[in-house]
Simulated assay, not measured.
Amino acid sequence: MSHAIRVLATGGPEVLQWEQVPTPEPGPGQVLIKQAAVGLNFIDVYFRSGLYKTPLPMTPGMEAAGTILRLGPGVADLREGDRVAYASMPLGAYAEHRVMPADRLVHLPDGLSFETAAGMMMTGLTAQFLLHRTYKVAPGDTVLIYAAAGGVGLVLCQWAKHLGASVIGVVSRESKVALAASHGADHVLLAHEDIPARVRDITSGAMVPVVYDSIGRDTFEASLDCLAPLGMMVSYGNASGPVPPVDISQLAAKGSLFLTRPSLVTYTAKRKALLSAAEALFAVVEKGIVRIEVEQTFPLRDAAEAHRALEARQTTGSTVLLP
């Protein structure tokens, strides 16, 4: 037997229940993983609350790192004892043991701990596609990054700075300013400020070619107003709630803007793309270009407490759950 967090009905953090469950067996193309560390991400909140729909009961979580215990039939490029990590569907990471499709796993470099891996796969792979594929950041660009002291935000700030961009970060409170600044943000704004006005001052009226916005409803309009003509609005999260229906004519009125709602699932759907993104992420982390900050850890059984802290914006960097 094993243990996992189970959700029988969607709702608040209290629906996350620690239960004894059978240890699963890997089927064709799958492996059984003994999980050493599990990543906490806002997408877990979306599934738990019912914003994102999934059949119930379910075990949440899309990110973890651990050791392969058993191989299912047809798995050729992995071995028992391999250290692996993932950030992928299907749900089920909040567990001591789980099965995963072998083609969704990547080998973990020896120099990276399980905790670091669980704190970087979702955030790091997301940052990789946002900076290199959704909008290809180039030297001299000025980029605006919301939640700049959060898990994805800290990686985005560091990586964008390495690519030669000038980085404007937005944080929710004064206590997070220094953290964002120490991770590459050239300017750090507070969320209660008039963000478009501040961006106008910083850029001498030019505004920015891209906004990375993980907040959603509360910041969407301001984000559009920060963009230069032909700029790209990248809405990749809903921390404050989903963005209401959009009148697309305002994109024309504000400068023929582009709007996208990307997801990691799509950008890593092909294994070649997943491996390429992971290779790029591991390279910048191992070289010290991007520092992964696991700022909080919780026992996996206390996942509800971790969700409360995340939703209250009491966390910085990455949060990891330990089975």
Rank of each mutant, 00 (worst) to 15 (best):
A222I: 02
Y135A: 07
V234A: 06
E96D: 08
A64D: 06
T260D: 12
Q20A: 15
T23L: 15
P28Y: 13
A4D: 07
E80A: 08
L179K: 00
A9L: 12
F114S: 06
S240T: 00
L56Q: 10
E96S: 11
G288A: 06
G29D: 05
K287T: 13
A127R: 05
N238R: 12
D218Y: 03
Y146E: 00
F220L: 00
T116R: 03
T23Q: 15
F220T: 00
M62N: 13
G241F: 07
K161G: 05
R301E: 14
L251F: 04
A252P: 05
V211I: 05
L321D: 11
V143R: 01
V170S: 04
M120Q: 03
L179H: 01
L131A: 00
S88P: 14
L105D: 08
P73D: 15
G255R: 06
G151W: 01
P109M: 04
P90D: 04
P22Y: 06
T10G: 14
P55Y: 03
D110K: 15
P196S: 06
R6A: 08
V7C: 06
Q35K: 05
T126S: 11
S263H: 09
H183Y: 02
S204V: 12
I292V: 15
L230C: 12
P13D: 14
A239V: 08
T116H: 07
T59W: 06
T260N: 10
L275D: 14
V188A: 02
D247L: 02
A160R: 01
T268A: 07
N41T: 01
S49V: 04
H187V: 11
V152R: 02
A95D: 13
A85C: 14
P60N: 08
A239P: 06
L275P: 10
V38P: 03
H3K: 11
Q250A: 10
T319P: 11
L227K: 00
V106F: 12
V171A: 01
A76G: 13
G12P: 09
A165Y: 07
R271D: 08
P262I: 08
Y135G: 08
Y94K: 10
L300S: 01
L264R: 03
P13V: 08
L78E: 09
R79C: 10
L227R: 01
E14H: 06
K272Y: 13
L154Q: 03
L274P: 04
Q35I: 13
T219H: 08
A118P: 10
A185N: 03
R308Y: 04
Y146A: 04
P245N: 14
D82A: 08
